[in-house]
Structure formats: structure tokens, C-alpha cells
């Protein structure tokens, strides 16, 4: 720990920002998955998607609570989750993309899980004890998410002609949001250098290997990487986020400051 006040402040702010963006990823994705409740193609899948959503909410809660603690301004998990403006959310763009059909939801979850799986495993070695502890729990959960979505990618890719076509479309639609997963901005760099964060750019090879292995079994191909969308980490979102927030924040905005 630094001996002077100034770098300590900066470092805390960076850590806050780093934890908060991770929390946002998990909250927004869980909000999307929650929309599936009661709507899945089979009852078993309804339970499975709810399980994944619950894991993500749990991870988001742990991260928001920690972010609030790091920030030190008395904001709790709910104030951070519900009481910020659209430009203040720093989630990855892929997490806010609409559920679409089941193929889109599965591809979105598969892309993210194939990234979060090595991400959390590396985070287990973080110098930050809290992040390492959150990672230890999350990495077990995401292993299941990756397995579950991989199985569906294979079934749907190598299922019927219709399911194959739907998967091709979903892969095409979501591919442009995958570049952002591996970006390293100043916050991420600083966290990496201090031994707290993960080198996201270094996860790309493993991600590609995981994704391509499964897609091959599914008789599918990873689309060519064209222009990659970016902006989530700077609060520049797609139009979808505003609608997510207007539902998510409805109660807290309508009845500010109350206990539920």
C-alpha cells in the first residue's frame, strides 16, 4: 500500500471503477436472462436459465457491495445498482443486447461464459483478497454456464436446418460485440499492473479456442471478425440499455429512499 494519500485515492478510484464495471456486466446480463423466466422452450430450460440468472445476480451483489466499500461514500449495492444514470453504467455492450430468439440468448451467454471462465480463473490469483474470493465462487458457477451453453450450441448447430440457420444468424449478429471483451483501457491496465486485475487481451486466444472447438462440433463457424463495436466501458451504449434501466430502476425511481 502506498505511503501517501494521493496515489491511494487514485488507486481506490480505479479499483472502484474496475469492480463497478464488472458488477454492471453481471447485473445487466442477469436482467436480460430474468426476462426468460416462464418463457423458455422447455420447463427444464426455464429452471436452467433462472439458475444462471441467479448466479449472475449473486455475483453482481457481491461486486456492488465491494465497490461501495471501496468507494467509501456509504453507497450500498442497491444504490449502485439502481440509482445511476444511463451513461454511468459501464457494462459490456454484449450484455445488454436483446434476448432475441433462444439461439441469440444461447450465443450471447456462450460468448460471455467462454470469456468469463478464464477471466475468473485468473482473478482467483488477484492480490485483492475480496476479488479473489468472489472469483473463487464465480469460477465454479461459470464453468457450469459454459458447459450448459456449449451443449445447446452443439444441439442447435447440429440439430435441424432451421436451428442451424438461426444459430448462424445469432453468431453473425453478436460477433461484433466480442471485440470489447478483450479491450484493456487505462483502468484495466492500472489494475493489471498492480496485480489486482486480469489481462483481458491475453484471454483472446483461449476464448477463440474454446469457441471454435464447440462451434466445430456444432457444424458452425465463427464469423469473420469485422468492425468491433465498443463504448460500454465509457458509458456509450446501444439504445437497449435505457429500456432495461427504465424497468430495473422503476421502483427505486418512483419511491426514492424507501426500504423494501
Amino acid at each position: 500500500m502506498s505511503g501517501t494519500c494521493e496515489p491511494m485515492m487514485t488507486s481506490n478510484q480505479t479499483l472502484f471503477s474496475y469492480v463497478l464495471r464488472l458488477a454492471d456486466d453481471h447485473l445487466i446480463l442477469s436482467q436480460r436472462l430474468g426476462e426468460w423466466c416462464g418463457e423458455a422452450p422447455t420447463l427444464e430450460e426455464d429452471l436452467a436459465l433462472a439458475n444462471i440468472a441467479l448466479d449472475l445476480i449473486g455475483q453482481a451483489r457481491a461486486l456492488y457491495a465491494y465497490a461501495g466499500q471501496v468507494e467509501g461514500k456509504g453507497r450500498d449495492e442497491d444504490q449502485l445498482a439502481f440509482m445511476r444514470y444511463e451513461r454511468d453504467y459501464q457494462n459490456l455492450l454484449i450484455t445488454e443486447q436483446p434476448n432475441g430468439d433462444f439461439a441469440h440468448t444461447i450465443v450471447r451467454q456462450f460468448f460471455i461464459s467462454a470469456y468469463m471462465d478464464p477471466f475468473w480463473r485468473r482473478m482467483e490469483g488477484s492480490k485483492d483478497d475480496m476479488l479473489a474470493a468472489i472469483a473463487a465462487k464465480a469460477s465454479k458457477e461459470v464453468t457450469y454456464h459454459l458447459r450448459h451453453t456449449s451443449e445447446w450450441v452443439i444441439r442447435l448447430g447440429d440439430g435441424t436446418r432451421e436451428s442451424h440457420e438461426r444459430m448462424v444468424e445469432a453468431l453473425d449478429d453478436l460477433m461484433m460485440f466480442t471485440g470489447e471483451l478483450f479491450e484493456m483501457d487505462a483502468v484495466a491496465q492500472e489494475m493489471l499492473q498492480s496485480g489486482v486485475g486480469v489481462d483481458a487481451s491475453d484471454l483472446k486466444a483461449e476464448w477463440q479456442h474454446t469457441v471454435q472447438t464447440i462451434l466445430q462440433e456444432a457444424t458452425l463457424e465463427l464469423p469473420k471478425a469485422g468492425h468491433m463495436q465498443t463504448g460500454g466501458r465509457m458509458g456509450r451504449h446501444s439504445e437497449h440499455l435505457g429500456h432495461i434501466l427504465s424497468e430495473l430502476q422503476y421502483m427505486q425511481r418512483s419511491f426514492p429512499g424507501l426500504t423494501w
Binding site: L27, E35, N51, L54, I57, A81, M251
Partner: peptide
């Protein structure tokens, strides 16, 4: 589920509706 007022309530409600499916 999408409008639950807190994260704790959201998780509990989602788990409850999931139980009903179960």
C-alpha cells in the same frame, strides 16, 4: 422480476418463480 425494488428481492423472487417451475 425485472422491476423488483432491490437486488435481494429480485434474487428471491426469481428463485421463487423458479421453484414454481420445479
Amino acid at each position: 422480476i425485472s422491476r423488483a425494488p432491490t437486488l435481494r428481492r429480485k434474487a428471491a423472487l426469481l428463485a421463487k418463480v423458479q421453484d414454481e417451475g420445479g
